[in-house]
């Protein structure tokens, strides 16, 4: 198996970079969110013929993140999950559960200081 490596990109470049990958027929595998102190790291993973490509963006809590749903329609579940668990917000989601995908009320349980 290949070694894990990723590329850190700017928030503004995200959509253009992902669009390029889509044209090369990459498949969206996952978006993984990690809280590192006050910031959040989002790791986007793409796959083409069983080789992986990772992009990483680092955002603060209040910055709206552009949604991938205009490029990959199926990203709405992954993004809604992050919205639920970490309280981040995504702009222009095609199906927005407003933080109620998993919990009946808005309550980001995965935040580190929130027990």
């Amino acid at each position: 198996m290949e070694k894990f490596s990723y590329k850190i990109i700017n928030l503004q470049d995200l959509l253009t970079q992902v669009k390029e990958l889509r044209e090369k027929k990459y498949r969206l595998v996952s978006i993984s969110c990690t809280q590192v102190e006050e910031k959040f790291e989002l790791l986007y993973t793409f796959d083409l013929n069983l080789s992986l490509k990772h992009l990483k963006i680092i955002v603060a809590k209040d910055t709206p993140i552009p949604s991938l749903t205009c490029i990959y329609e199926g990203a709405f579940l992954l993004e809604n999950e992050i919205q639920d668990q970490f309280g981040l917000s995504f702009a222009k989601l095609n199906i927005d559960y407003k933080g109620q995908l998993f919990y009946p009320e808005k309550n980001p349980l995965f935040l580190k200081n929130n027990k």
Binding site: L77, Q85, L101, F102, Y103
Partner: peptide, 10 residues
């Protein structure tokens, strides 16, 4: 439109 959350444990 799918709806979830009935088995979520975290």
């Amino acid at each position: 439109i799918p709806g979830f959350g009935y088995v979520h444990r975290g």
